[in-house]
Design a protein around this nucleic acid. Sequence first.
RNA 1: UGCCCGAUGGUGUAACGGUAGCACAACAGACUCUGGAUCUGUUUGUCAUGGUUCAAAUCCAUGUCGGGCAGCCA
Length: 597
Amino acid sequence: MSDADTHTQPAPRDFIRDIVLEDLRAGRHSRIVTRFPPEPNGYLHIGHAKSICLNFGIAVEHAGICHLRMDDTNPTKEEVEYVESIQHDVNWLTAGWAEDRLGLKSKGALPVSQSVQGRPDFHIEAIAAAPGRTLEPFYASDYFPQFYDYAIGLIRRGSAYVCDLSPADTDAYRGAPDRPGRNSPFRDRSPEESLDLFQRMKAGEFPDGARTLRARIDMASPNVWLRDPVLYRIRHAEHHHTGNAWCIYPMYDFAHCVSDYIEGITHSICTLEFEVHRPLYDWILNKLELPRPLPHQYEFARLNLTYTVMSKRKLLQLVKERRVSGWDDPRMPTLAGLRRRGYPASALRQFCRGIGVTKYSGTTDVGLLENCVRQELNRTAPRRSAVLNPLEVILDTYPEGEGEMLDALNNPEDSAAGTRHVPFSRRLYIEREDFLENPPKKFFRLAPGQEVRLRYGYIIRCDRVEKDAEGNLLRLHCSHDPATRGGNTPDGRKIKGTIHWVSADHCVCAPVRLYDRLFTRENPEEAGDFLDCLNSDSLQTVSAHMEPALADTPPGGRVQFERLGYFFADPVDSRPGAPVFHRIVGLRDSWAKTAAS
RNA sequence: UGCCCGAUGGUGUAACGGUAGCACAACAGACUCUGGAUCUGUUUGUCAUGGUUCAAAUCCAUGUCGGGCAGCCA
């Protein structure tokens, strides 16, 4: 889908959008504010694209805004490399679609203290881009001072306490899902003592793990997340954004809901595994007795795709163990990988629109994604010819040393795309698979004594097969019908097969990387180690023979190699005049299906 | 075996008490200078059992199956 089409398509409907609609109807918000809050501990993948499309989509549909926020409360796992990659990927995916809904803030901006209904309050808002203003994403870590303030409020009200239990004891006291926990011996510590201890935790008086700040809720709750969850832990670690300013760090559950509140988020949309955290999300915000309207959390099913893995841990493992060339390896389901493979952002958006948003955790057929690329590229990609696996053809009837230029359509789907000249000569290459010495029925390509059309060329007949002493196929000798120049049949004769070709005397060679799915099993995690079903043939590099025009493919350009698939000039490895191609996806091939059966 | 959530063709989804529809896949055919594209048609579905109702995929109950939850990760 082109960007224009993305805008003109009707807005999708799903249960979350219904809630937003209803909230708007009921006048609960003057403006919708969503957020996309990745933790910068890895690269974004296509599952994140689903979330981005949802959150930014809602903002687009209601003239709202979607904050990009680094959920960076764990200094030991997060890195600047990841925050940069996340920004890049979000910009790429939203470009031409939702970039004007991207909520950022002035570089270095922090929440402001204000008074609402006579009560102190913290707030930060997205600002519009303006000349001379450098913008950056929101960072949860920018709110550490506010989190600290709010935590003190909780302690004062008796809703939180400092606990001296070790990590192991904390676990033991928590009980199990079917067994209630026990109160910590420190649960009834006075607010004054907790306050003092919490201040000293912040001051760095205690080692990692020595103490925590905990919410005082209910150790017998059937929801384990309500059994006095840890709110703060001690980590003497340098943080990518706050440096060494802090040695206590808030936990997700505390930081996330408060971040949403500070930013004025109306709808906090996350994946299903946080469903059991929602009571805690609401509990914290309620205990804080905040003056402004509270955000609400909604959960949807994360994306699962066949023949790939989506967990950051596993993707990181593939990168670390060099099973792939990096986070942007074209076989990776990361946005960086898909981009480098050649997927247009609009195709990813179209995919996300197509899969919908529900609470059912299913697995989407990767074919759906591939279909979205084909659908878009069929309309937009210029056609070219390239031969991946060459077989030489000599036209004995064609004059030696001569050649001519033939006209070829750039895109039959787009009359405005025009035509180009392709050189023709006596010596050609065709695809080896397009010739069979003993063809089965309904094989409409080249075979001894059989006719075939060279696309935009001539009708040729195979007269003789030349082999070496071992009987290996060397080349084909064919004759052409001069009356069929351009591929036409003035006599009205029907030619079933048309194959692609390049002139051996004019063609250029370029590397083509043929990618296949990374895993051989639909669900790589279902049995044992997911690495066991790594597809050893997921990358094959060939030197392809191409029509000369292909040498000028600009880096980042997408073309269709006729009858083969859609290809992308890799922006990283291509050089001027020397492109390196990636197969994005093959064309549908109904012959392959019948041939197989 | 505690709590939460879910279940519609092979896959993903729609139907918001009133005709089970769409996309992908599959199959068949038409058309075609890409065995591409396009077009037409076909196959396949409401987890089960009860209940409420004139009427249930939809509401209720029970069961079955699936997912999630016991980090000082997010």
